[in-house]
Simulated scan of single mutants.
Amino acid sequence: MHKGSIRSPLTWAVHLSVLFLVVIWTLPTAGLFISALRDKDQIVASGWWTALSTSTQNAMYRAPGAESQVEENGAFVISGNIFEGGKGVVTAFGTSSQDPAAYEPGTTAELKDGEKLTVAESGDFRLTSPKAFEGTRGQRIFYTAGIPPRFTLENYKTVLTAEGIGKSFLNSLTVAVPSTIIPILVAAFAAYALAWMKFPGRAIILAVIVGLLVVPLQMSLIPLLRMYNSVGGFFGVPSKTYLGIWLAHMGFGLPLAIYLLRNYIAGLPREIMESARVDGASDFTIFMKIVLPLSYPALASFAIFQFLWTWNDLLVAMVFLGTGDNELVLTGRLVNLLGSRGGKWEILTASAFITIIVPLLVFFTLQRYLVRGLLAGSVKGG
């Protein structure tokens, strides 16, 4: 047996570490996907890992009011099923929140004025009274039940059919695409100049760019907005426009873009640059014909991160674009769907998968160009 066929303990340790990281990153995504397909009541009652098992739920059902009563043999009856079309097995029920498990299924609970309540294991209930029921609010029934797994697309339907969701989707695309392309174009030219062109103050400019990497977005957001409004007011440009948010994202993304691209471009073979200069090529020609094709990996990498940031952004969009129905981006629309108190948080799972569709498409598309750029660079550099 060759020595190379025996894997060292270090190799096994690396493989196990990678497998562990894959599992750690995959489990939350799997849980999110499973939760997005579960019934909203079961999401509240149990974790996603119990999705295939029967869950125990404590709930309250309000019976129909007096308008649903019928007369049978001199008595007035209101009947129905507490599961409202679903399935489950009642293990206990009650008529008060103080004692929700006072009765076993199938037994009869004595209520006021001679009223009686019976709840079966199947969830069928029967409320009887010797005299006619009054009022539109029916009797409350508290119960404990075992609910079988329920999977539904209702959460996705709620998100996709929400009013204004299509407009917000287009708004997010209108913000994210230019906010990704513009910084890349500007940063690529600046990175080449800082890497291969000699001019006074180059080191100081690079130091300033590195310093800007640590400036918090929240600290510079309001001053940048005031400066933009002042300049826009001088030239008669409205404050809440797409131009404003494009410039804002360009400003926040340029330091990192220039820093990354400059380091990459500076590492390109010097012989290629010198040969091009000997042949009479200008800096612009060298940049367009040599540097840019060899820089596809770095450009694609930054494009992925910039698009993810601008697509998922809410703060900058609210400040520079506004919160009106016609300006609201997708993340803001989904936040509004939760309600003022977050009462509909179960749609977060479906919203998460809807919002990652476009970033996933961008990632896989740019990954193909990333590989292509790596191959092109290796051939040209050879």
Rank of each mutant, 00 (worst) to 15 (best):
H249V: 06
F234N: 10
L243F: 02
F234W: 03
F235G: 09
Q218T: 08
S230W: 04
M197L: 10
P223F: 04
L224S: 00
P200Y: 08
L243E: 10
G232W: 02
I245D: 01
Y242R: 04
G236Y: 06
I258P: 14
I222Q: 02
M219S: 15
A193M: 12
I222G: 00
L224H: 05
A203E: 15
L213C: 13
I265C: 12
G244M: 01
P223Y: 05
G201T: 03
L217F: 03
I209W: 12
L213R: 15
W246P: 03
A190M: 11
G236M: 05
N229L: 05
I204K: 15
A193S: 11
P223E: 00
L217Q: 10
H249P: 04
G233Q: 13
P238S: 10
A248F: 00
P238A: 06
F234S: 12
Y192H: 13
L260T: 15
Y192F: 13
G253T: 13
A191N: 13
R202T: 06
W246T: 07
Y228G: 04
M250N: 00
A207D: 07
A188E: 12
V237Y: 01
H249G: 06
F252A: 05
L206Y: 15
M227E: 01
Y264R: 08
G201L: 11
S239M: 08
S239N: 13
A257C: 09
V214S: 06
L212T: 03
A248D: 02
P255E: 07
I245L: 02
L225Q: 04
N229S: 11
G251S: 08
K240A: 09
S230F: 02
L225A: 03
V215K: 05
W246H: 07
K198A: 06
L225D: 02
M227Q: 09
V231F: 07
F252S: 09
L194Y: 08
Y228V: 09
F234D: 13
L224T: 03
L194W: 15
G211I: 10
P223S: 01
Y264Q: 12
L261V: 14
G236N: 08
L243Y: 00
Q218I: 15
L194A: 12
F199I: 09
G251N: 03
A203K: 15
A207P: 08
Y264A: 10
G236E: 13
Y192L: 14
R262W: 11
F235R: 04
I258Y: 09
R262F: 07
V214C: 13
I258W: 06
L221N: 01
L213H: 12
R262G: 09
V215Y: 03
I222P: 04
F235N: 10
P200E: 12
Y259N: 11
R262A: 08
P216M: 04
